[in-house]
Structure formats: C-alpha cells, structure tokens
Simulated assay, not measured.
Amino acid sequence: MASPSSPWLVAPALLAPIVVHAAQYLSVEQAQRVLFPAADRYEPHSVTLTAAQRKAIEQASDTRVYNSRPKVWQAMQGDTVLGHFFVDQVYGKHEFITYALAITSEGTVAGVEILEYRETHGYQVRQPRWRAQFLGKDADDAVKLGRDIQNISGATLSCRHLTDGVRRLLATHRAVLASQP
C-alpha cells in the first residue's frame, strides 16, 4: 500500500493539465465596426492622464485607475466625431477580460463587447442581454452591480469588474474627452 506521501500519488496530479478557457471573440477592428457601424474611420486618440485627472476619475467612479494611458480611438464619419471607442482590461476572478466600450459624442454608452475572455467561469457576461444593460448609461448614472446592472449567478466577479470598468471609462470620458473636439 502506498503511503500518502508516495510519489506515485503525487505525480499524476503534477502531470494533469491545467484547463484554461481562453477565447478571442472579436478583434479591435471587428469591435469598432460592431459598436460604431456608421464610422468610416477610427483615429487613435492619445491620452495620458495627469495625477489630478486620475484622482478625479477615481473619485467620480469609485474605482481605481491602473492605466494612465487608456487605449482610445475617435470614431469618425467624415468630419463628424461619432464618439470614442475604448479597449480596456479588468480582472475576472484570476485572469484579464479584454473588452471594448463605445461612448457616443453625447457621453452615453453605445455598446459593450467582450473581445477576449480567459476565465473558466463567468463567460455569461458575453450575453447580449446582460451587456445591453449598459446602453444609454452616462457618467451621471450609478452603473453599479446589483443596483442598475443585474448580476449573473456564477459570474459575479466578472460582472462586478466589468461594471466597474465601464463606470471608470465613463468617468474618464467625462473628465478628459467630453470637452475635446
């Protein structure tokens, strides 16, 4: 009989594959076309947040700003700015979730798309019905899980962190981009 510390019992556990469910659903370019279908081009918009802007965004969103250089593009149709397109990442439970957020020139959410999901659970945040809860929200709305954004059982951390990310980007848009052409 093998003892509990026998290498014959431990070895299979060490050799067992770690299952990671990673899926890329959309590229940045595909998400741009989905979220701003009327746009004829997307111009990269260089943003570097100052310490004061970071602090203002954190206070307005009640969420920490980790990245001082958000990835953002202006969605253009001819000479008209349709809005801003962000690509951001938040943690699910253990891994990053990469998502895109479209904010209209009026400052409201035009859509949210999941670009890449790496978690083993919580992928239900890709459901159109869940993501549709953000449509029309702006920086004045609470955008809080359990308040105006419903949770999905089994995907609580993904729901919470994506909701926090959207709220943070709405605050970023208002603090930095809303007054710019």
Rank of each mutant, 00 (worst) to 15 (best):
Y91D: 15
Q74H: 07
V47M: 06
S61I: 08
S61W: 00
P7Q: 11
V28S: 14
L170K: 03
Y42I: 00
F36C: 07
R131A: 02
R160C: 01
A13F: 06
T80Q: 12
E95D: 12
T48D: 00
P17A: 08
D40V: 04
S46E: 11
R33P: 05
P4W: 00
N67I: 06
M1N: 04
F36I: 00
A56F: 03
V112Y: 12
Q53C: 04
K137S: 06
E113M: 11
M76K: 11
T156F: 00
L170F: 04
V65K: 03
P12H: 04
V34E: 15
G78I: 02
L115R: 02
L170G: 04
T120N: 15
L162N: 06
T156N: 04
G111I: 03
F96E: 04
A155M: 01
A100I: 10
V65D: 02
R174M: 14
A23Q: 05
Q89D: 08
L14P: 00
S46L: 06
A16G: 10
H21D: 10
T172Q: 07
R118Y: 05
E119F: 02
A52C: 11
Q30F: 13
D148G: 00
E43A: 13
E29W: 13
T172K: 09
Q32M: 06
I18S: 15
N151C: 04
S179R: 15
K55C: 11
A52Q: 10
W130I: 09
M76P: 02
L49Q: 09
G122M: 02
S5V: 06
T156W: 07
R167D: 01
D40S: 04
L115K: 12
K55V: 11
Y42K: 07
Q124D: 07
T163R: 01
D138T: 03
F134S: 00
R168S: 07
F36Q: 02
D148C: 03
V28W: 11
A171I: 06
P44L: 01
E119G: 13
L157Q: 05
L9H: 08
V10A: 14
A16L: 06
R167H: 04
I152K: 05
H21I: 02
Q127C: 11
P128F: 13
D62W: 14
D141M: 02
R69K: 13
V10L: 10
H45Y: 06
K137I: 10
V20A: 15
S179Q: 15
F86P: 10
L14A: 00
S158C: 09
K93M: 02
I18P: 13
L82A: 12
V47T: 00
A22R: 15
V87C: 12
D88W: 10
L135Y: 14
Y117I: 01
F36M: 01
I152Y: 03
I152T: 01
T120G: 15
A175Q: 12
I97E: 08
Q32Y: 12
H173L: 03
A39P: 03
R118H: 09
W73H: 10
D140N: 15
K137G: 03
E58Q: 02
P181A: 15
G107P: 00
Q180T: 08
D141A: 01
R126A: 12
V72N: 01
G111N: 11
G165N: 04
T48R: 10
K55M: 05
A175F: 13
G136L: 04
P12D: 01
T172S: 13
S6P: 14
L101S: 05
S68C: 13
S6G: 15
Q180L: 14
A100N: 05
